[in-house]
Design a protein around this nucleic acid. Sequence first.
RNA 1: GCGUCGGUGGUAGAGUGGUCAAUUACAACAGACUGUAAAUCUGUCGCCUUCGGGCUACGAAGGUUCAAAUCCUUCCCGACGCACCA
Length: 398
Amino acid sequence: MKIITDEKRIDEVLSRGVHEVFTKEELRKKLLSGKQLHFKLGTDVTGSFLHLGHSVIHRKLRDFQELGHKVTLIIGDFTTLVGDHSDKVDMRKETTLKDVKQMEKDYQNQFFKTVLKGQTKIRHNSEWLKKLNFNDVINLTKQFTISQMLDRESFVLRYKAGKPIGLDEFLYPLMQGYDSVALKCDVELGGTDQTFNLLAGRHLMSCFGLIPQNAIAMKLLVGSDGRPMGKSLKNFIPISDNPNDMYGQIMSIVDEVMFDYFELVTRIPMSEITMMKKEMQSGTNPINFKKRLAKEVVLFYHGEKKANEAEENFINTFSKKEIPDKMEEINGSKGENLVDILVSKKVLISKGEWRRLVEQNAIHDLENDTRIIDVNLKLEKNLTLKIGKKRFVKILIK
RNA sequence: GCGUCGGUGGUAGAGUGGUCAAUUACAACAGACUGUAAAUCUGUCGCCUUCGGGCUACGAAGGUUCAAAUCCUUCCCGACGCACCA
């Protein structure tokens, strides 16, 4: 494989979406040398979906692949099975090997929507972590001090706030760092939240007499509420979303973060993005830019046709307030209470919710273009309902 | 091991015997408006209800009381301090 050493391109790849490179000069030299570099990304497999935030890092890996470099994805099966207990609620729920296998499969499917499979190897960190004995672990811990650990912001914040920190949590950076030692990779990627772990890898490698890896900390994509996108917060946009939802979710991000999205999850040239930013500042309506953003992202995952459809659907449904072509269909029997159907089919959580929605005038009968005001309405004929402004459901008499 | 403080709804965090299904903020949901599923404003926000109320919930289990998130006992969990420190 030919390694691209175009200086301009390398500089673009090293700056777009990048928060910090440890260290930039070092890595730049390596990239310019024409040698094929080995990039590493480690991941836990705790959830079965990826969101746009993850994809920022995946895109960067792709960038490097396109320069001719190779990638290893490390599945943190060992780490996952040991269980990260900072999420205390789920401490009891043991993740089984089977779960991990399934989640790994899902992860890969989504991962390879962005990253090139042909230039990627997959490894599992149980391969080497399982083999370590207590002695080895102690040796690893000797390379760090408590105060070094407390350099990590999340530790020191929790410590000062009187929140618990598990001793095992100190070991995660070591495990992740040891992954780098085992693989002897050249560069590791992660979000800015991974900075500490990335540097731990760098540190450990030098302890083991290896050339320390370079590390790239990517900017974090913020969610619709302006906070970093994460699973625990409900502000993420899954990349497995269907085109319509994905489009809509992107339309609902706050205006302020729109250009971060352009930078992080599209390939629109930075110069163009800067121009759009300027136009917006001089008063252009942001909605057109946001539409472009939404379309661009949907296009990446679903192709042009679906992207166009999603845009159309959005304009029709929300701008023109038309009824979408496709919607959820559920069955009910004649004379059955509408509420019972909706609750039993899990369209609504409870009867209380239904009552509230009816009281709030949120239920539209689209067949007759009226609002439903009778809480006890029974199903007499097929109905098309609009619940709130974005949920549609068709009820058919079976 | 001893001691002190603490464990509350999706989250943060008030409340320390009745007026508590629990102040508030965030999230969520709805309505109005719009540039959109943005922003803003307003409302809703445990479950069931014949709309009177009923039921379940403030770490767990017991107890006191007409009445407990609130008091007592035991247990579990956390933070802090002391002790211990190969």
